[in-house]
Design a protein around this nucleic acid. Structure first.
Lengths: 192, 192, 192, 192
DNA sequence: AATGAATGAGAGTTCATTCAT
DNA sequence: AATGAATGAACTCTCATTCAT
């Protein structure tokens, strides 16, 4: 990727993150990057495509970050779950462009929305399922019925934590209660 | 409230719900309502204030709908929880403007947002806590520690269900698994 | 005149005076007067006609104020001229609505402009001519040629003093030099 | 300066001159210049800034025109004064936007106004003072006291001529009497 | 590959005016 | 005589996009 394109992508990501899709103008991005507006169109064709590229590259970053959890741990699967949940909260807190995609206004870009969210969800479900399966194999967890359902439930819970109430302001309070919450959540899962 | 204002508010709510705040133009609302654009400004002063009034009135509707649950039921508290969750999903599915306010990118409306979301969250926590307390009193639930924490957790879970993935497309599949999910969730809560 | 009309006229005068013709809205006047907007139209038919009535009534006030000079003085005609000039400066400083009429933007109301300004100018020329004639009769002034020309010249000078440079900020400095200026101006007129 | 910008500036100047600031719309300027409205904003950012640029460039033109007087004449200083006054009247008659800035109601532009008017006034005072001083040196004029006061007085007189009454309609009559007026004005100044 | 001048459709907003009550 | 809800034309300004260089 050319240095100009790289620079534009990075700047776009920052600016979209700060002001959101609609409040960010192509002009602003170009000026911030100290490039010409025409270059944006040369490399990305349209504002929407630029945003898509930003989101896509951000998702790759998210996955990378989350994957690192598994490499480090051979520990108790409940600890891995806990680590994943905390890491996710931190990472999502940073990656606002992904959240931007979730805005109801993005319903107009329905196909893209579905692509992006479904892909990310499937990926996460797969990761979580893997952890849960390992827990079952190791005899740490008991999951009658489909494991996928439990994974989905965990994911729903994690998504609930994305809402600003919890991310902003009440973050610390939540962390301190986090083990409690996970305890309750995993009580139904834990073997004894 | 004059019939014109009423009509404009209803139309605005529908249109914001369909296309979101930015993609909805004042002109569009006015035309949809078959009223003059000037009337919008006569009654609401600005697009932002119109949106706020829409959100506020929608939240009032949400509360009303959710409150009706308690009136109808003297049943098992687990059934009430279940009914609340399902009702909430249905209601939120309709009242899409509420989600609009959940996005942290809405910087301009920040103060308004905090007020509105915090109020709604507090209200919901109170309702859920009430249900849980009744369940404990009736000997149906067992909640060691603070009840408020359980209520908060349930709320997080409910908020996780709001994300577009579940509202659009996968709605039916989710409903069919809903009892499973609630079962797991309430297993940690249930007394035996 | 009804109390409502009176109230509206007074308020309109104040508001036009503060913000000028274009920056003042009918709504603002009505609200300031705590009357309904419809009442403005009932009494004055249009914004332009309201403004005309304001200017007309203000000119009547100006003339009244300036006339009072002659009643008080039987003194040296040069003193009367001086008193007139000072009084005029003070009075014009108050009556901004008349000045508003002089704005280039008012060229579109050409007929009204001509009516108002010509009338006021003629009136002033007549007053000044009267003073000058008295001065000549009393042997205090020497005016070869037409007296009207001298009157006109004095009027031009007085109009020059209306510009903001002199009215705003430099007012005091000007007053202190006023006698000097008048001295020069009247030197050509004075008999010896 | 690009041809487009140049064209827009010229057209804006003409249109503001004809209809004044408020009655001139950006749309009208753009259409008159056969350019896109967006181009106006690309080059001038706002209506106010466009107007400022128009006024500024017009003042530059005024100064240039007035300066030419001195280059041509080595004549009697009274003739130079006369030439200056006549030239000024003609030039001001063309450059109506200058008057626009003279109105105290232009509160929004106040700081800009002060700068522009004070600068122009100072410039004119300097020019007139220069003429007067030359007249004194050449022994043509007699000015007891400060020369600056005389210059200021002349300027006040010149400003008095700017009012619409004299610019419109009565222009010819005034010109025919002009020498008379100047005669009186300079009588107090002339050395015999 | 890169530029930035130029565009024009469409946005939010204002406001003099009308009219049923 | 007085009201204020309702109107719609006109306004300033924004911005994604195009294109000649």
């Amino acid at each position: 990727m050319s240095p100009t394109k790289q620079k534009l992508l990075t700047t776009a990501s920052k600016t979209f993150g700060k002001y959101g899709f609609y409040k960010t103008s192509m002009d602003e991005i170009a000026k911030s990057a100290r490039k010409a507006k025409g270059s944006l169109y040369y490399h990305f064709n349209s504002k929407e495509l630029l945003f898509r590229e930003v989101v896509t590259s951000e998702l790759d970053f998210l996955k990378q970050e989350l994957t690192s959890i598994f490499d480090d741990h051979n520990a108790d699967s409940r600890d891995i779950i806990r680590a994943y949940m905390i890491k996710r909260m931190m990472v999502m807190n940073i990656s606002i462009n992904y959240q931007e995609t979730l805005r109801p206004e993005f319903y107009e870009f329905y196909e893209f929305l579905n692509d992006v969210i479904l892909e990310m969800d499937e990926w996460e479900k797969k990761q979580i399922t893997k952890i849960l399966n390992q827990g079952v194999e190791k005899g740490e967890l008991e999951l009658p019925g489909e494991v996928a359902i439990y994974a989905e439930m965990l994911l729903i819970f994690l998504k609930g934590l994305e809402t600003p109430l919890f991310l902003k302001g009440q973050y610390e309070r939540l962390i301190s209660n986090f083990d409690n919450l996970i305890g309750i959540l995993t009580k139904g899962i834990s073997k004894i």
